[in-house]
Write a protein that binds this DNA or RNA. Structure first.
Lengths: 252, 252
DNA sequence: AGCGCTCGAATTGCATGCAGTTTGGGGCCC
DNA sequence: GGGCCCCAAACTGCATGCAATTCGAGCGCT
């Protein structure tokens, strides 16, 4: 059985979804950096909708972990901690091993062609900006997930992949896409051969090496992170006894 | 290292979150059955808020997969297909294996006591309704996830566990909680011993057996599912050429 | 100059109103 | 009697308005 029927994965075509998609893309391409402010008015005006819609979109993005929402405060692009980034990658590894396990030996010729075409596109994009390369690499993984025809799996892989994208932009240095592309090709060929164990191992190694290249060290908190450093220590105060930190961290 | 600092997992205390929690619970306790209608007005009135808020809550729940939202139509409690249920369990197995792998040998005495206390509560609830038993069993798994202190993992495990809860209520028969409780105890003791491989195996078997007990067969589509049966066949039409099905399926 | 304080502008939280769509029931025709 | 159509009621999609809160620039004090 090559595939189940394709299924509507919510996210239809109402205005909220459109804005979500636009923002998601802007975030993973780093047009919007982590910490960037997202006022409802501004979004609404930019996309030609009311605050209500913009607000709703921010809610969805927050549920996906791409945006941070604090009561009465301007929404900002999420700034995952190093630990959260590591957690995301750990989850991603398990999910994507599941993806390729389900897919091994089950792909049609057309699907394999589609995957190869995508990697070709990645190849062509090597001259372009890092952001586009990263986006394409991420979309390769999402394309794989789609081929399982499991809407739930698609959703989780997409979400966690986007989150990883986000952390890459935070903690990663230059980023060599070369080997990633080769690894993608290796995965495709192992999938075609139908060697489930092999392809799971390849995927595991692929993601692990991406993670390790990116999340180099428990990074001595570069930049804005003073608040994060202090957060654990302030964590025992009850939520109403909020510690008013002195103004240290500059804001985006 | 027993634990990282506890972290705010969104879902603070605004009205939207309150409604989400209430509905979530109502759904997993089957007070609201799959297919039940959720009109914005009614929710708003019941919870003393405006439609805006109710609507937003429904949006969140839809993102979690507990509610189905179709444009211009009343929201309904999700009715996962058998295949979706199976997919959810597959994902859940991988995620929870990750949970116990991270937890094995890392739990404090206090945490083990907390787990045991929870299972005791499950035990005491055996006389009560099925719905409560199922909820408690689910909450055991979520409690485990919390102990990893990985907010992302907590979120995914919670979501997928709730989804499984929902499918249990759809496809499962009487449900014997006995063995589940014993399996929970076995997992706790293996966690305490720190045998990661063993506990992963236990968790895998536990969830697999719950799934198999529940999702007995590719169920010959009992009840409402005529539309689902036909869906794949209608799937090649483009979205504007919608096939108008004759009025067959009665609605909730 | 540096620090804190205050107050207007910016922004969010939420309710309400209006327009467009869906729903379902009653009447009409066969 | 059964099927079809039409229409009012129900409901959603979305914008706007108002109150409450936060933000941040400027002012005065040290």
């Amino acid at each position: 059985m090559p595939a189940r029927a394709s299924s509507r994965t919510s996210e239809s075509s109402d205005k909220v979804s459109v804005i979500c998609r636009a923002l998601r893309r802007a975030i993973i391409e780093q047009a919007l950096e982590p910490g960037a402010k997202l006022p409802e008015d501004a979004l609404g005006e930019r996309f030609g909708v009311s605050r209500t819609i913009a607000r709703h979109a921010l809610g969805q993005l927050a549920a996906e972990g791409l945006v941070e929402l604090r009561r009465n405060r301007i929404a900002v692009v999420a700034t995952p901690s190093w630990q959260e980034a590591r957690d995301a990658f750990d989850i991603r590894i398990e999910l994507e091993r599941l993806v390729v396990r389900q897919l091994a030996g089950k792909l049609t010729k057309a699907q394999i062609a589609e995957l190869n075409a995508h990697v070709d596109a990645e190849d062509r994009a090597r001259g372009g900006t890092d952001a586009v390369s990263i986006r394409l690499a991420t979309e390769f993984h999402i394309l794989l997930a789609h081929m399982t025809n499991s809407p739930i799996l698609v959703r989780y892989v997409s979400e966690v992949a986007y989150r990883c994208c986000l952390t890459l932009s935070l903690y990663s240095r230059p980023h060599s896409t070369e080997c990633a592309i080769n690894e993608h090709r290796a995965i495709i060929s192992a999938l075609a051969k139908g060697d489930a164990a092999k392809v799971m191992e390849l995927m595991h190694h692929h993601l692990d090496s991406v993670a390790n290249r990116a999340l180099v060290a428990p990074t001595p908190q570069r930049g804005r992170d003073l608040l994060d450093i202090l957060a654990p220590y302030a964590d025992e105060v009850t939520s109403d006894r909020v510690v008013k930190l002195p103004k240290i961290a500059r804001r985006g």
